[in-house]
């Protein structure tokens, strides 16, 4: 059985590489019974969304009052 510590590593790695079938299965099973790891999955997912929103905010093209090529 996966420990919570290992599960947090897999949650994170799942955001950076494709987990194997066995890893995915083990992680899903663990998440069903572990509230702390489900919260961790939520937190890391939120971090990804927030980072992506931060990037988009900074990369947005300059305001175009004359309405150039959209």
């Amino acid at each position: 059985m996966l420990s919570c510590k290992d599960a947090t590593e897999l949650i994170s790695q799942g955001m950076d590489r494709r987990l194997s079938l066995v890893e995915r299965f083990g992680l899903r099973l663990h998440l069903l019974i572990c509230r702390g790891c489900r919260a961790t999955e939520q937190h890391l997912g939120f971090l990804r969304n927030a980072s992506s929103a931060w990037r988009q905010h900074h990369e947005a093209p300059p305001s175009t009052p004359q309405g150039d090529s959209k």
């Binding site: 420990s3 919570c4 510590k5 290992d6 572990c34 509230r35 702390g36 790891c37 489900r38 919260a39 961790t40 939520q42 937190h43 939120f46 969304n49 927030a50 929103a53």
Partner: peptide, 18 residues
């Protein structure tokens, strides 16, 4: 044994923070 000492709680409505 690699279990949470103090499991972290879920965040309520984090998307609103954005």
């Amino acid at each position: 044994r690699g279990h949470w000492r103090d499991p972290p709680p879920a965040w309520s409505d984090p998307a609103a923070s954005l």
